[in-house]
Write a protein that binds this DNA or RNA. Structure first.
Lengths: 102, 102
DNA sequence: CGTGTAAGGAATTCTGACACG
DNA sequence: CGTGTAAGGAATTCTGACACG
């Protein structure tokens, strides 16, 4: 419920550019490098979410620090893997606890 | 902080139309009747918030019930007045309580 | 590699008006 | 009153390419 807004892809690239301070060129390029994943309207115009705004801000910071796009992408992957592992562990422990009760 | 997204005017009329199911014509008309207040880009395109989406849904419901735009506007005004009064009362009581303590 | 830019075209939005009821 | 629609123009976005470094 509270995520419904942050995740909804409804914002146009011009507005995203204003919100993030990045050029449209940069934003499209980060998509090409698989750092960001906008949806498309029927006509083909890109649509972003507030979550994407936040992600772009992080990307911008890392770029300023001299990081390269592929490094950022790798870092993201690592983070996702860790989160997945953590979730699996939690699920596993819940499962074990559940079995013990019967 | 949690309002920062709902209030931000970033959505284009086409998307608003999709989200609400209303035609662009209807959305512009409700603005003309002072029921909704989008911002504008430099170029003049309207920009709406998620809050506006919710407001438009309510308007749509009332229209379906046969209510007229001026009635809806009047109702809104009443609601705002009530809320204002309530806030003033709370503030007044807080003030009174505060004075008593000194 | 990351970004700017000019180019041409397509999608999107805008306004004012006419129509219907 | 509330909404659809065709009309013409302007703002917005899109892609592929060249440039620089």
């Amino acid at each position: 419920m509270s995520r419904s807004y942050k995740d909804k892809k409804v914002i146009t690239i011009g507005v995203i550019s204003e919100l993030t301070g990045l050029s449209e060129r940069q934003i499209r390029y980060y998509e090409e490098r698989k750092l960001i994943f906008p949806e498309r309207s029927n006509g083909g115009t890109r649509k972003y979410s507030f979550d994407d705004v936040e992600r772009l801000m992080e990307i911008a910071n890392k770029m300023e620090e001299g990081m390269q796009t592929f490094e950022i992408r790798k870092q993201e992957k690592q983070k996702m893997k860790k989160e997945q592992l953590r979730d699996e562990m939690i699920r596993g422990q819940l499962n074990a606890a559940f079995k013990m009760r019967k």
